[in-house]
Amino acid sequence: MSAVNPALRKEVISIYKELLNLGKDYPQGYDYFRPRLHRAFMSNAHLKDDDEIRKAIARADFVRKEIEALYYLKRYRTLRKRYDGL
């Protein structure tokens, strides 16, 4: 662990924690989510180039937004079905 930019390392850890926290509400359960998340991060563990790491962080951020949208839509649809009778 020599050439890795410490600022980026911090960013990676914080997005990982953020995703873990999101995963607690995952429809298929935390036990489904956590190993998959871990695998996804480990598959990029070999990255050394700053730009590539930044790209991977951007992708993780994209996934975070997608999961948030998923939760929002799931709740919105359930409530709409219940209260609007649609």
Partner: peptide, 15 residues
Amino acid sequence: DLRLNEPRYASLPNI
């Protein structure tokens, strides 16, 4: 009502 806005998800630092 339901369509007013899209509630955010609280981020870890904010928690």
